[in-house]
């Protein structure tokens, strides 16, 4: 594990890189607007009355914070791993006294730091327009932030585990699409997980997907409260540990196959 000083230095570096591509990340965000489009649909549907316990305000809050959660957790690490293995770009990272994942993670964090200052005002404006503000949101904020951080870890762990395919097959990018679809579709970006049919919900509960986006968002809008919040954190922690352990095991196996292509 790198020292705090090393982490800070890497963050500063990647933050700097991301700032240079500011315009690019604005546009990139446009492509992450699925929750906002869905909000429009659901708001229109809810005009005739609440749906499954969600009224217009709840929908607005759900999808605005879903937008925030979605924009806070994206990862392109499979792409990085695929390129790293194919072109040998992983080599310089392997030569450093630090797990290469720290480098990839800090690239994501640096980019996030550049992106949040654009995202947060967008969410605030959205809340103002939809007239969806409530003071109780403030009380849920700490739990939301904690839940998001854990969600980031789950999602990253999921993706790096799938990314190990890069060591074994010519093209891991196809699987990137698979995991991305599951993350989006089953995470609540299109339909709030609570509005899924009961059977689907109970199957989903056994997967990490609802804990990446839906869980923190529901904590934020107050649809999960009290002891259930703690239980949710517990399950998040479980997925982080389980996926992390599986990845560590797989990484060791996969590295043996690394052929350090290129130079």
């Amino acid at each position: 594990m790198p020292s705090l000083k090393a982490l800070r230095a890497m963050l500063a570096l990647h933050y700097g890189i991301s700032l240079q591509y500011r315009a690019q990340s604005v546009l990139w965000m446009i492509n992450g607007t699925v929750p906002l489009i869905m909000m429009l649909i659901w708001l229109q549907l809810a005009e005739d009355g609440p749906i499954g316990g969600y009224d217009a305000t709840t929908f607005a809050q759900y999808f605005l914070f879903m937008f925030l959660a979605r924009q806070s957790t994206p990862t392109w690490v499979i792409y990085l791993m695929d390129r790293g293995v194919k072109n040998g770009e992983l080599s310089p990272h392997l030569l450093r006294p630090m797990h290469p994942m720290w480098h990839y993670a800090s690239e994501h964090w640096g980019e996030l730091m550049a992106r949040l200052p654009i995202i947060l005002p967008m969410v605030a404006i959205g809340i103002a327009i939809a007239d969806a503000w409530s003071w109780s949101l403030l009380a849920h904020l700490p739990a939301f932030v904690l839940g998001l951080m854990m969600a980031w870890l789950i999602n990253f762990a999921m993706h790096v585990t799938v990314g190990l395919i890069a060591f074994w097959s010519d093209n891991a990018l196809g699987y990137d699409t698979v995991i991305y679809q599951l993350y989006i579709m089953l995470g609540g970006v299109v339909v709030p997980v609570e509005l899924f049919p009961q059977t689907v919900q109970s199957i989903l509960a056994w997967t990490p997907f609802p804990y990446v986006l839906d869980f923190p968002v529901r904590v934020m809008i107050g649809r999960i409260e009290g002891i259930d919040v703690l239980a949710g954190f517990g399950i998040q922690l479980f997925w982080i540990v389980a996926l992390g352990a599986f990845f560590t095991w797989g990484w060791r196996k996969s590295l043996k196959r690394y052929a350090a292509a290129g130079a």
């Binding site: 570096l13 700097g16 450093r96």
Partner: peptide, 10 residues
């Protein structure tokens, strides 16, 4: 910038 990162990592 890169050198500073190396300093911290090593």
């Amino acid at each position: 910038d890169s050198f500073l990162v190396n300093q911290a990592i090593y």
